[in-house]
């Protein structure tokens, strides 16, 4: 287990996630077991946060659990947390934990969001310009 994983494990769960845990059933058991009950992650992973793989390492890929490996391959094409969740059919919370672990091993790169720039005016101006240039 990576250091980042241990860190996250020591963080206590909030009430909402505890409620979900006690009702864990059927399909839900697997993703939960997968993350060892970790529901908080160290990195700030928003649904729009982009993930990519700077340099695909087939040896590392082999060593990963199937879900992490699938995520690692998918992220070779820059992809958001939301799209990874939908494409891999895993809840957002699980994707966040898996991404966090991979990032802890420097296997994936977490791109900055506009929020990471505190939605500053320069970033917003670029977004506005981009919208104005869209073909109608």
């Amino acid at each position: 287990m990576t250091d980042s994983a241990k860190d996250v494990m020591t963080v206590s769960h909030d009430d909402k996630s505890d409620g979900a845990q006690t009702k864990m059933r059927s399909k839900r058991v697997r993703p939960y077991a997968l993350t060892g009950g970790r529901t908080r992650t160290r990195h700030h992973l928003l649904v729009e946060t982009l993930i990519s793989v700077p340099e695909f390492d087939p040896v590392l890929a082999e060593s990963l659990m199937p879900e992490s490996r699938a995520l690692y391959s998918r992220a070779c094409q820059r992809m958001s947390i939301a799209e990874l969740s939908a494409n891999l059919d895993l809840p957002l919370g699980v994707i966040r934990v898996l991404v966090s672990d991979l990032a802890g091993q420097n296997a994936v790169f977490i791109h900055p969001t506009a929020y990471a720039y505190q939605n500053n005016p320069q970033v917003l101006e670029r977004i506005l310009d981009g919208l104005k240039q869209l073909p109608v």
Binding site: S52, F109, H111, T113, A114
Partner: peptide, 19 residues
Amino acid sequence: MDSSSSPSDPGLLTISAKI
């Protein structure tokens, strides 16, 4: 920010925003 980027690839860094 994370330090696992590859600075040699200028096209890599992408900002995402949300509405």
